Each structure stands twice: as structure tokens, then as C-alpha cells.
Simulated scan of single mutants.
Amino acid sequence: MTIRSRLRSTLLALLPIALLPLMACGGNEGKVTLLLTDAPGDDIRTAVVTISEIYLKGGDGEGGRVVLRDTPATVSLLELANSTSELVSDAVVPNGDYSELRFVITGGYIEVANADGASTVFASSADYAGLPAGTQVDGQLHMPSFGTSGLKVKFSEKLTIEGEQKVLLVDFDVGQSFGKEAGNAGKWVMHPVIKAAEVTASGSIRVTADTAPTVTLPVVDGHQVTLGDFNAVMTNDAGSSERLALTDEDGDGTYEAVFKFLIPGTFTVHLEPPSYVSASTTPDQPVTVEVGSGRDVANHFTITGATQQ
């Protein structure tokens, strides 16, 4: 897959929030807030899903099921790059242990980049309400059972509610969650890869870069290349990559990009020069990064050589 260019935005406006009937939280209840973020997709230009219900499994609720939200929300997953959206806020939940979170997904569509630069749209149905007006649907997006039994998000350890506020971060890996059905060019299948963690356990990677004193970046077609023409690229352990442009907001000559709201794990980072420049760095690239609970991990690169290609 070719790596797509990502939307760079600040925190999204909050989606409409549907809560359980709020009652005073006594000793047998706690509260849960749910945030949704996204890991990147490569040649997927748009990915939209409608989440009609969110609930927890386990605990002492009816049938082990505690509904957190039952008002539909249509979410553009790619717009969550490097940000979060709040789907549930302070939902009252009985104390207990919960083994999984479920999303009932009743529709969706993706727009996929083609080799010729055009795009193809695959939707759960031709009349899916989340489609922009006038969109031509070219094929089917198959979403097996997600509208009935729901999409299961298992916790690495049971979620324990004991009267305190729990904030969950759910990471929806777009690049790993949609794939073309083998032998069927007219159908894509949604097979979500998502992780969940308490948001207090999320981390970030801060990439900074400068040039060595002896290095001058080239002038290409009258344009003086700067580090602002470079991207920082982060790749997760599933192979999905996200790029952010380097910026120098304070003008001190050191450029940076920050990848936020990361589920702890192993990542690699590297600098990507513009296509017309070849560059070398210290340290060598890529660099493997371990993001721990609540950590902001810093990685600095120095450009030690740069020539026009």
C-alpha cells in the first residue's frame, strides 16, 4: 500500500453524547468515559462508520450487558488522526469486572485510492445514510455480524469499576481493518483491528530534527528546501504508518512533530525527505521506540547530509 497523506487537525468537536439515565453514584456504581482515536490507513481516503450502540460485557448488569450509549453516531475515522472524539461521557456503570467492550456498527463506507489517482467507493448498502449526497457506490463493504452481535473489543486485563472515573481509549487501526476480498474486486470486508486501554496509560512520540552546522539543504527549482519540507513517519507494530509534517513554531531552527494518544507498544520512527531530496541522519533510520504507560518519548534526528535527487 502507498502511504496516504493524513489530515492534521486539533481535537475534533465532540460528537453528540447519549448517556445512561444519570443517578447519584453511590458505593455500587462508577462512571465510564469513552474516547475513540485512530491508527492510520494507507490507501484508504475515507472511512466512515455508524455506531448505533456501545455496551460493556460482564459485571452484574442484565445478562452481563451494560449499555453506555444507544444513540447512533456517524464517525469519520480518518479525521481522528492524532486526535480523539468523545463518544461516551460519565456513563453510570455498576461496580464489577468487565471483559470486553462492544460496538454495534450498522453501516459504513470507505473510499479507496486507485492506481490512476481516481477512487472507488464501497458501502454497506447503496442507500447507507452516511454517504455524502450524490455519491456513486461502486461495490459492497461487507460488515459481518457487526450490526447484531457487535464488534468485540477485548481488554488485555479485565476492566474493574469500583466507584471511580474510568476513561477508556479505543484505537481503531484503519490500515489493518479493511481489506479487499480475495478474488472479488467488487467487495471489501471490514475486519477491525482495535485496541483499548485506559487513557491514562496512553503515550506519545515526539520527533525533533535539526541540521548539522556543516550541512546546507539544497535549492531545488528555485525553492530553498527546509526541514519544513520533511515529514516524521511513525509505524506501529501492525505495519500501519502515519506521517506528520515537521514544524518550527518558535523559530529556533529545531523542527518537531508529535504523535499523540498512542496505545503503549513498539513503534518505529524516521524522517521522510521530499521526493526530490536524499538525506542522511544521525542516528541511522528507522529508530525503534518503546512507548510506555503515560510516557512522552522523545527522538531527535540530525541531518548530516542532503543532496538533490
Rank of each mutant, 00 (worst) to 15 (best):
G61N: 13
V32K: 01
E79A: 14
G30C: 06
P94S: 14
D97H: 12
L56R: 09
R69F: 00
E111M: 01
G58A: 10
A91L: 04
E62H: 15
M23T: 15
R45L: 15
N28S: 15
A81H: 10
P72L: 12
G64I: 03
G108A: 06
T71K: 12
V92E: 06
I54T: 13
L77N: 01
L78R: 11
E62F: 09
V49R: 07
V32G: 07
D43N: 12
P94A: 08
T74C: 12
V93N: 07
S89V: 00
E62V: 15
N82R: 03
T50N: 15
R65L: 01
E53A: 14
L36Y: 00
L34M: 05
K31A: 12
Y55T: 08
G64C: 06
E53M: 12
S52N: 12
P40Q: 14
T106R: 01
E62W: 08
R102P: 00
I51K: 03
G107W: 00
E53H: 01
G59N: 13
E100T: 07
F103G: 08
M23N: 13
L56Y: 07
G59R: 09
L35H: 10
L68H: 06
Y98E: 10
V104E: 01
V92H: 04
D60E: 13
S99N: 14
D97N: 14
Y55P: 11
D60L: 14
V48F: 03
E53G: 07
V88S: 06
L22F: 04
A81S: 15
P40S: 15
A39F: 00
S99Q: 10
G96F: 02
I110Y: 03
V88I: 09
A91M: 03
V104S: 02
R69A: 11
T74G: 11
N28L: 14
T106S: 12
E79Q: 14
V75H: 05
V104K: 04
S83F: 00
L87V: 09
E86M: 02
G61M: 07
L87N: 11
G64L: 07
D90L: 09
T106V: 08
S52W: 04
V75M: 04
S99G: 09
I110A: 03
G26N: 11
S85P: 00
P40T: 15
G64H: 09
T46Y: 03
S85M: 02
P21F: 07
A24T: 11
R45S: 11
E29W: 09
P21A: 10
I51W: 05
V32Y: 03
S85L: 01
D90E: 09
I44A: 07
K57G: 10
P72F: 06
T37S: 14
I110F: 03
A39D: 14
D42A: 14
K31M: 13
E100S: 14
L78G: 10
A81R: 08
G26S: 08
E29V: 07
G108H: 04
V88A: 03
G58C: 10
V92N: 09
Y109H: 09
R69K: 11
K57E: 15
I110N: 03
E53P: 10
G63P: 05
N28Y: 12
D60Q: 13
N95K: 04
G41T: 10
N95P: 00
T106P: 08
R45P: 00
T71L: 13
L35D: 07
D60R: 13
V66L: 06
T50Y: 05
